[in-house]
Measured scan of single mutants.
Amino acid sequence: MSGNGNAAATAEENSPKMRVIRVGTRKSQLARIQTDSVVATLKASYPGLQFEIIAMSTTGDKILDTALSKIGEKSLFTKELEHALEKNEVDLVVHSLKDLPTVLPPGFTIGAICKRENPHDAVVFHPKFVGKTLETLPEKSVVGTSSLRRAAQLQRKFPHLEFRSIRGNLNTRLRKLDEQQEFSAIILATAGLQRMGWHNRVGQILHPEECMYAVGQGALGVEVRAKDQDILDLVGVLHDPETLLRCIAERAFLRHLEGGCSVPVAVHTAMKDGQLYLTGGVWSLDGSDSIQETMQATIHVPAQHEDGPEDDPQLVGITARNIPRGPQLAAQNLGISLANLLLSKGAKNILDVARQLNDAH
């Protein structure tokens, strides 16, 4: 009898209710805020589980004197976190989706994509230029951005401005803007500013005609071990179906173009009346040469937790077992079709030249 009692006690200790789920994140304040929001949602869904947040620095956090596009290494903000995932030191990792490459290392998958916040870019102005827009900034004003995508589009749109690289986390960039006289304004992701509670610093939100956004911008991705079915089931509740389908289309477009950090590629997606609209573009580094096109596809946005595919093969690095396969494939095909259209119009040449120029500098 006593033996059975011990077995029952052991089973209770090993039951999922007692389990601590370890969540990996970057150390920056924004990353911690984003991770806290994901953990809060998981806690609400699984009140019996405990969650421990483990923060670590990544290569991208450490190399702050070089433009991201020049470092010449993929997975700048993800490699150390993936290493911890691989060694079973954490069970899942919360990322900004735009930091996750469209091809993940073997053994990993994006197990959830959370509801997207505003994906557009924002302009934050130096205190002396508050009330201005990019259009009304004085001639030769210097605007800071760490992104080739932003610089290429904005140089084309605002030729009277000069664009220079600015690195560091959000706090560091804002301090550089406010305390030094080098920059009249800087460009940042609206979602990051909003998550930090800095709505009052948003001086201008850039519309798609001015600057399309990065693939996955404004959404959070939760990376897990691809074979860890328990954790895949656990994080599945975080999937937002519309965000998922938009981001599958965007990531398929980028992957098929073979774009990345070192080339200016941008997108804009919208879901309306059962249609998914995808606009994508590529630019030369100075913005003088560009190709942009829009395509659409009829896609039914499923309700969360309709029964999805059981075999769960990944699409552009994403596993969404609780979302039907048909809409996911339709979104992926839309991204591939748009990429093929741009490639047929000469996108590869623009991107190759951009890559060579970026590598040469």
Results as ranks from 00 to 15, higher is better:
residue 333 N to I: 15
residue 93 V to S: 03
residue 160 H to N: 11
residue 186 I to Q: 12
residue 46 Y to K: 10
residue 216 G to P: 00
residue 51 F to P: 12
residue 139 E to I: 14
residue 352 D to H: 15
residue 166 I to N: 08
residue 175 R to V: 13
residue 37 S to P: 06
residue 334 L to T: 00
residue 275 Q to K: 12
residue 194 Q to F: 00
residue 201 R to V: 10
residue 213 Y to N: 10
residue 315 L to S: 14
residue 133 T to C: 12
residue 173 R to A: 02
residue 322 N to I: 09
residue 220 L to S: 06
residue 252 A to S: 03
residue 148 L to K: 14
residue 289 D to Q: 15
residue 197 G to D: 03
residue 319 T to C: 12
residue 47 P to F: 08
residue 132 K to L: 10
residue 166 I to E: 02
residue 136 T to V: 10
residue 206 L to H: 00
residue 143 V to D: 04
residue 179 E to L: 09
residue 340 N to H: 02
residue 192 G to H: 01
residue 240 D to V: 12
residue 255 R to L: 00
residue 317 G to S: 04
residue 330 A to V: 15
residue 56 M to P: 05
residue 360 A to V: 15
residue 285 L to V: 10
residue 269 T to A: 09
residue 290 S to V: 08
residue 212 M to E: 04
residue 264 P to V: 00
residue 192 G to R: 01
residue 124 V to L: 09
residue 244 L to T: 14
residue 211 C to R: 00
residue 57 S to F: 14
residue 132 K to S: 12
residue 230 D to C: 01
residue 304 Q to S: 14
residue 79 K to T: 09
residue 237 V to S: 11
residue 245 L to S: 00
residue 118 N to E: 14
residue 190 T to C: 14
residue 264 P to A: 04
residue 159 P to H: 13
residue 282 V to M: 08
residue 198 W to A: 13
residue 172 T to R: 10
residue 350 I to D: 04
residue 190 T to P: 06
residue 205 I to N: 10
residue 297 A to T: 12
residue 38 V to H: 03
residue 131 G to F: 10
residue 198 W to S: 10
residue 239 H to V: 03
residue 95 H to A: 09
residue 235 V to W: 02
residue 100 L to C: 15
residue 216 G to Y: 06
residue 121 D to T: 02
residue 196 M to P: 01
residue 124 V to P: 03
residue 137 L to M: 12
residue 177 L to W: 01
residue 324 P to H: 14
residue 203 G to V: 14
residue 226 A to R: 08
residue 190 T to M: 03
residue 39 V to T: 08
residue 306 E to C: 04
residue 41 T to S: 13
residue 204 Q to I: 01
residue 254 L to A: 02
residue 347 A to S: 15
residue 174 L to N: 05
residue 230 D to H: 00
residue 303 A to G: 04
residue 225 R to Q: 02
residue 71 I to Y: 11
residue 151 A to W: 11
residue 300 H to P: 10
residue 356 Q to I: 02
residue 299 I to D: 11
residue 81 L to K: 03
residue 163 F to R: 09
residue 238 L to F: 00
residue 51 F to M: 09
residue 265 V to D: 02
residue 138 P to F: 08
residue 160 H to Q: 13
residue 139 E to G: 10
residue 98 K to W: 01
residue 48 G to A: 12
residue 299 I to Y: 12
residue 263 V to E: 14
residue 315 L to R: 04
residue 288 S to F: 09
residue 279 T to V: 08
residue 243 T to G: 11
residue 95 H to L: 09
residue 212 M to C: 01
residue 48 G to S: 11
residue 355 R to C: 00
residue 332 Q to R: 12
residue 48 G to Y: 09
residue 81 L to P: 07
residue 175 R to S: 10
residue 129 F to Y: 12
residue 147 S to R: 04
residue 304 Q to P: 05
residue 175 R to T: 08
residue 39 V to M: 08
residue 187 I to K: 01
residue 259 G to S: 11
residue 92 L to Y: 02
residue 205 I to C: 13
residue 315 L to Y: 00
residue 89 E to K: 09
residue 67 A to P: 03
residue 128 K to G: 05
residue 207 H to R: 08
residue 196 M to E: 05
residue 161 L to W: 07
residue 272 K to Y: 02
residue 176 K to F: 13
residue 148 L to N: 00
residue 269 T to S: 04
residue 251 R to K: 12
residue 293 E to P: 01
residue 239 H to L: 05
residue 348 K to T: 04
residue 164 R to Y: 07
residue 101 P to S: 11
residue 110 I to G: 00
